[in-house]
Computed example of a mutant assay.
Amino acid sequence: MKLMQGILLINKDKGFTSHDVVALCRKHLGLKKIGHTGTLDPMARGVLPILVGKATKISNYLMGQDKVYEGTMQFGYRTDTLDADGEILEVSPNKIFTEKDLLEAMKLFTGKIDQVPPMYSAIKIKGKKLYEYARQGQEVERKTRQVEIYSFDLLDLSGDQISFRVSCSSGTYIRSLVDDLARELKSLATLVDLNRVQVGNFSLDQCHSILDLKEGKLSAGDLIPMDQGLDLQKIEVQEDYFNALMFGQSVPCSQSLDKEFKVYCKNQFVGIGISPYPGFIRINKCLLEV
């Protein structure tokens, strides 16, 4: 029987937390060792990579991958969460912006920018998550974080709503981006819809539905091999060194090496390797499916 380990791509529906999806996977796949690769807000939908079995060991690598989102923002009000799930804090007179107004403002938020994380987020300050402070009515000073917006495109303009597409680095808060854009336009806005359409090389058309999961239609064959989720250099090692690799020993390698790389031997993915000293490699994280 094929082992249940790898990456399961789920198209998360609105209303589910990332933790909800993990719990459903544990229940319907009958496994305990399952995790996700970073929180997707309950009001958001889209690509949520679920790590099964040994694939949980590569969560740090997938969390840092770039993302692509498509969303809709509505001008005229701002909520405490900066999205449609929150309570309205402020309203502003209805302003109708031209396409030119929007495109000029959006250009200012392309490239490397500084963001202040929203109060309703899972970032920890003094051992406590920001949303826990927010629920107690406390505003906490947050440091700005640099993120990168590779592209910020206008998809549609309809009255007081615009639809957009954002390609960005990991750690970008689209809610904050929407809020900052509105402020630049001397207005207020709230994120009312968000769809994550890509995480790294994984896209929405590769995802399975939560309904398929609940109906027991997913199996080991639906999992993507974990090495496909790693954007690392690929190194092939001679078969003679297989046992040495598996025992954590260093073996010779004549290739030019990155800091970390995917190691293959005997036509199979062994794990993530490092070079302890020039001309040699060893397995730092064994991920062989055995």
Rank of each mutant, 00 (worst) to 15 (best):
R183H: 12
C207S: 07
V47G: 03
R135D: 06
Y150A: 10
E215W: 08
V263C: 10
A189H: 01
V166C: 04
K33D: 10
I7S: 01
N195D: 12
D13I: 11
Q74C: 10
M63L: 15
V270S: 00
D66I: 07
L288P: 05
N11L: 09
G216T: 08
E184A: 10
K234A: 13
D205S: 15
V290N: 14
A105Y: 00
K57D: 06
L218D: 06
E239H: 11
I58S: 00
S254V: 14
V197W: 05
H36S: 01
V199I: 14
R26S: 06
F242C: 00
D156K: 15
K67D: 04
I162F: 07
E215H: 14
Y69V: 02
M119S: 05
L185N: 04
L9N: 08
K124T: 10
L188E: 03
I123H: 06
I174S: 07
N201I: 12
T39G: 03
G38M: 08
A182G: 07
E184F: 05
N284W: 06
T190V: 03
A182F: 07
E215G: 11
S256E: 15
Q65M: 15
V199M: 12
S170W: 08
D222L: 08
I272M: 08
V147T: 09
C286V: 13
V263I: 15
T72L: 03
L211C: 11
E260S: 09
G35V: 01
A220N: 10
E87F: 09
F97Y: 09
M246H: 08
L31G: 07
P225N: 10
I88S: 09
F261R: 03
K112W: 11
G64W: 07
Y133C: 00
C286M: 15
N94Y: 13
I96V: 15
P252Q: 08
A189W: 05
A244M: 14
T98G: 13
S187L: 02
V21G: 06
L230V: 05
L62D: 07
P225C: 09
K57Y: 02
D205M: 04
G64S: 13
E215C: 11
E236I: 12
I10Y: 04
K33E: 11
P278Y: 11
A189D: 02
D83A: 07
N284D: 15
K259P: 10
Q136A: 14
A23L: 12
L245K: 04
G200V: 01
T190F: 09
G127D: 12
